[in-house]
Structure formats: structure tokens, C-alpha cells
Simulated assay, not measured.
Amino acid sequence: MIGGAAGSAAADAPTGQPVRPAAASAEVPAGVSAGVAVFDRQTGTFTEQLNTSTRFRSASVVKLLLALDYLWNRGPDYTVPAADRAWLEPMLRGSDDDAASAYWSDHGGTAIITRMVDRLGLKDTAPPPTGYEGYWGYTALSARDTVTIYRYLLDSAPGPVRDFMMGNLRQSTRCASDGFDQHFGIAGAFDKPWAVKQGWSGSSYEKGTCGQKRTATASVARAGSPAADVDLTRPALHSTGTVGAGDRSIVAVFTLHPVGTSYGKAYTDIGRLTRSLNVPGATRSAGWWYGTWSDHVNVRPDPGTGNSPITQLPAGVEVLVGCQAKGEVVNVPPYTNEWWAYLPQYNGWISNIYINSPDNKMPDVKDC
């Protein structure tokens, strides 16, 4: 069975790619605009800098600033009450939009951003443009300002604030509150330990593929919005956080994609860009990268269809394959395949029928 012949969504995805052992500099996929910064906290130097001052609409990355605004000046021994954990934790771990919208409306909206710019000395960050004050996801943010935010968290914030924020970012859920798979970029390129806050915004992104399926409203771009110096139209996908033992590297990857780009394509492209980066302290996931085809492919707990799926893949996304094994025969006319691919990052299996490979069995992937 030739997987690539069954759908055009992954027509430009490569066949199996061995994981790169290292990288020299950022490799930006065709058609993608990017701002990238990687800061090595051990040496105090940047290992990657690309368009670091370019301003992007933040999407959900701004939730870092909302949480910090809440925690500011609450004392060195402050403990977050249970009632506030109930909205802060879902906002940081699952990128909950309702929590962010409630805090935005109740605590001054754009004034939150102004406060945090002054407190942290941010250079490029700015509130949403005139006429869009209610859209917290339209806050302007750059890669270098994002590094500043994480450096404050790790090196200057009171211990309880650091532990609360970073502890929640380490518990980022694969399924976000709006149903999108948010383990792209940093979370897909490197093994743990990592801590991430991701962002996505685009009217062309299909509904989420895991958990509950609803479309986020607060951070979705509207076609025709006035761009000023921040693009509010092209689909955005951002990955920010820390990588390695002791949070050695701070990584900020901001990307914009051509209008109409699917979520799976953007997910794949930011993954390729992030994997190309020089990130000190990072451990790169072992396996082979393969493209997939079809919509909402089920990831199963074992190589068969008898048990309920763990989750579903974004359409046409590239996945890391750890090994393959024979399992239940799957028929998707005109194709039939008994081989299954193990996806270590999902701890689950998909039928090889959905893998872009020249044969039923991938030629370079080891048996499980």
C-alpha cells in the first residue's frame, strides 16, 4: 500500500527521516515567516536569533502575562487559593480561553499588558490595536520579549511564583481546552524535561482533534483585520518554553503561515523548524519522522481497533515513529495493511495504512 497516493494533504511530506543528531541554525520551511530566539542560561548567550524583535500576535502565549499580572506583588510566601487555581491551572496547562477572557475583562484588559510591559521592561510587546481591545490574543509579542519573560520567571520571580508557573507549564496537556493537539514545536521536538506555553490562531484551522471539539473565539484571527505592524490575518502557531535539565535553554518560536494553511501543515512546519534549532541541553526524540494522510486518524492503545482511541491526529501531520509491528488487518479500500506504527510521543499506535510510505511495512523503521 502506498500511503501517499491516498490523499493530497501530505503530498509534500517526506518519507522516513532519521532524527537529526544536532543542528546548526534555524531552517524555516518555505512560505513560513518566523521569529526565533534560543537562550542558553548556562552560558548566558543566544544560540539562535532570527527576527527576534519582529512582533507577532501572541495568541495564547499572552496567558503568561495574564498569570504573572495576577501573581504580581502578592508576597514572597504567597500561596494561590484553590478558587484561583481552578482557572489559572487550566489556562496554563490546557490554554483555556474562557479563563483568559474572564481575567482580561475583569482586570483592565489592555491595561494588563501596559502594566506587564513596564514591570518586565519589554521592548516589543503592545496591547491589541484600536478596535480590537477585547481580543487578548492580538497582543503584540516578540521572540526576544518572550525570552525576557521566561528569564524573569526563572531568575527573578519569587520562588512560589516561579514554582507555580513553571510547574503548570511542565504539565501542559496534549489536548488543549479547545480540543487542539498542543504538543507541537518544543513538545514534539525534544524529550522531557520541558515546560511549554503554546499559541495558535487561524480561521483556516479545523476544529480540534482531541478531547472536546469546539472552536476557540478569543484568539482566532478575523479575515480583513487591520494589520498595522502586526499581521492579524495569516494563521499563527507559536511554541515557547524551556528545555533541558534545570531549564537550561529558553526557546521561543513564533510562526505565520500562508492563508488557508491547515492545522496539520502548520503543526508539521513548526516541528521541522524547531527540530533544526541549536538548543543546549535538549534531548532529541529517537525515531523516524513520517508524513500521514487522512483526517482525524485514530491513535490506539494497541495495534488494533478493538479499544477506544487515545486521541486523533491533526489532519496530514508529520509524526515520529518509534517502531512497527504486525497487528489487526485494516481495510481502507483500496488499501489493506496489517502493519502498525508505534508513536512514542502519543504512547499509541496508528495503522501503517495512514503513513506515507512506499510499502505496507516502512523500509527503514525497526520492528517493535
Rank of each mutant, 00 (worst) to 15 (best):
Q17Y: 00
Q17C: 01
P18D: 11
P18G: 05
P18H: 09
P18K: 11
V19E: 01
V19S: 03
R20P: 02
R20I: 00
R20Q: 07
R20Y: 01
A22G: 14
A23P: 02
A23N: 05
A24I: 14
A24G: 14
A24M: 14
A24R: 15
S25K: 12
S25W: 08
S25Y: 11
S25V: 07
E27C: 09
V28R: 07
P29E: 10
P29K: 10
P29T: 07
A30C: 10
A30H: 09
A30Q: 15
A30D: 15
G31I: 13
G31T: 08
G31F: 10
G31S: 05
V32H: 12
V32D: 13
S33T: 15
S33Q: 15
G35F: 08
G35P: 14
G35S: 14
V36R: 08
V36Q: 09
V36C: 11
A37P: 01
A37F: 00
A37V: 06
V38L: 10
V38G: 13
V38S: 14
D40Y: 02
D40R: 02
R41Y: 14
Q42A: 13
Q42G: 12
Q42P: 06
G44W: 10
G44V: 13
G44M: 10
T45Y: 13
T45D: 09
F46E: 12
F46K: 07
F46L: 13
F46T: 14
T47P: 07
E48A: 11
E48R: 08
E48Y: 10
E48L: 06
Q49D: 05
Q49T: 13
L50D: 02
N51G: 13
N51W: 01
N51S: 14
T52R: 10
T52Q: 14
T52S: 04
T52L: 04
S53V: 06
S53G: 08
S53C: 04
T54Q: 15
R55H: 02
F56V: 11
F56K: 11
F56W: 10
R57M: 12
R57L: 15
S58I: 09
S58T: 11
S58Q: 08
A59G: 11
A59T: 11
S60L: 00
S60T: 05
S60C: 02
V61N: 07
V61W: 00
V62L: 07
V62E: 07
K63N: 12
K63P: 08
L65M: 13
L65P: 03
A67Q: 00
A67M: 04
A67K: 03
L68N: 00
L68Y: 02
L68D: 00
L68G: 03
D69L: 01
D69S: 06
D69I: 01
Y70A: 03
Y70H: 13
Y70P: 02
Y70D: 03
L71G: 10
L71P: 05
W72D: 05
W72N: 06
W72L: 12
N73G: 09
N73S: 14
R74K: 15
R74Y: 02
R74M: 04
R74V: 04
G75A: 07
G75F: 08
G75D: 12
G75V: 10
P76I: 07
P76V: 14
P76D: 12
D77H: 15
Y78G: 04
T79E: 15
T79G: 08
T79W: 00
V80E: 00
V80Y: 00
V80A: 01
V80S: 02
